[in-house]
Amino acid sequence: MSVRVVFCEECRDEVSYTVEEKEMTGTIRGVQYHYIGREAKCANCGAYVDVEEISESNLKALYDVYRKENGIVSLEKIRAIPERYDIGKRPLSILLGWGEHTFTRYADGDIPTRQYSETLNRLFDDPAYYLSILEENKGRLMSQQTYEKSYKAVSALIGNNGMLDGKISEVVAYLLNQCEDITPLALQKSLYYIQGFFYAFFKKYIFVEDCEAWAHGPVYRDIYARYSDYHFDPISKVESFDSSIFTAQEKAILDSVIQNICCYSGKILEDFTHSESPWINTRGDLPDGASSNKIIDKHMIGDYFMKIKEQYGMNSPRDIQLYTKAVFASL
């Protein structure tokens, strides 16, 4: 709870006020949506007081729910795209063949159409897709320097074979350096838990890649292809790795997953994921063992692990052990 000062219409004076979270309802395009907002009250008389920053926060929370329930790209993703590809908002809009201020409007909070939303989602998630647009439409850009800067940024995210070769490959290398006898099955589940718990603690995804709900649990397809020849055998160890490339946040999650999750076999971790809603809900009514390439939505993963963090009272990544021990005991 926070306490600040604002003008109260009832008291006719500058007063302190308290802020509390509560469930609220808002209407967008004729449809009601429920969301968790904040409410300010005068500390003297208890009357509602108008605080601009709280009103703006509530409006954003309402629109966040609207975006999520209608499959609209998040504002955070939109705003991250120019930084991700080192390009300005106006040049990006022109590159896409949109009006020169269209992307800026979306970055300022306007809701994109479903078609534009799908494009923005794919731009964020798929650097190879962005590169194809950059190459095809580079003639639209006013400056060669703009093209070269953006090309350098996206190239850093894409490997020589055309597959993504950024953060997820660095994480794989670290796991293969630190873990003893890790099989392809265990590697896949470890990546999934790193993605989920990183979001739970730091409210952002560590990978841009999506995982799929395969019969044996979540799978990152490109990583599977890279190590499929090992079948059920442990993957060759990476003898040396410079972990200084990771931030303190990233390393905290990686080391906790290595200690508290990689200690289990791939088959046990498969059972873990088969008990969790992201994999279960994505599979739907598919029979056991049926093949599937259905993508497990990142938001589904993030929401699930945030709830796990709250349920088990996790205060730091070290507390991941509270969850894994409980799940293992229930198998």
Rank of each mutant, 00 (worst) to 15 (best):
A290P: 10
K204Y: 00
V49A: 11
A200K: 01
G196H: 02
S240D: 10
H299V: 14
F272N: 00
E23D: 08
R29A: 04
Q249A: 07
P218F: 10
Y323P: 02
T113C: 06
D222L: 09
E56Y: 07
R29Y: 08
V49P: 09
S155T: 11
S74C: 10
D242C: 07
K251H: 08
G71K: 11
S277P: 00
D86C: 05
R79Y: 00
E21S: 06
L254A: 00
A215I: 04
I223L: 07
E239N: 11
D229E: 12
F201V: 05
E239F: 05
I296D: 07
E10P: 07
S240A: 10
R140E: 00
V49S: 09
T183V: 10
D242M: 09
C262T: 06
E170F: 01
E148A: 10
K251E: 14
R226E: 11
M306G: 09
V49Y: 11
T273K: 03
M1F: 04
V6C: 15
G302V: 04
C11W: 05
Y199E: 01
G139T: 13
E250R: 06
E53I: 10
E76N: 12
S155M: 11
D181V: 07
I296N: 08
Y193V: 01
Y312E: 05
L175A: 03
D288I: 13
V219I: 14
S265I: 05
A252P: 09
A290F: 13
A225T: 11
A215V: 04
V172D: 02
R12P: 00
H34T: 14
N121L: 15
Y66T: 07
N281R: 12
S256L: 03
G159H: 04
V171A: 03
E76R: 12
D319S: 08
E39N: 11
Y33K: 08
A47R: 14
L322E: 09
E69R: 14
C179H: 02
R38G: 01
I72F: 11
E21T: 08
T282Y: 04
D271H: 15
L187V: 05
L141T: 01
Y323I: 02
L331S: 12
V238I: 15
Y323G: 00
R105G: 02
R79C: 13
R38C: 07
T27W: 01
G37P: 05
V172E: 05
D297E: 15
Y151W: 09
Y151A: 11
L286R: 10
D233W: 07
S117E: 05
I94Q: 04
R38T: 08
C8N: 13
S275D: 01
E239T: 12
A173Y: 11
H101G: 12
K89V: 09
D288M: 09
G284C: 07
N121Y: 14
L141M: 04
Q32M: 08
C263T: 14
Q321A: 15
Q32K: 13
V154G: 04
Y193H: 11
P278H: 03
T183S: 15
F201H: 01
H231W: 07
G71P: 03
Y312D: 05
Q188W: 13
N160H: 06
E136C: 06
F197T: 02
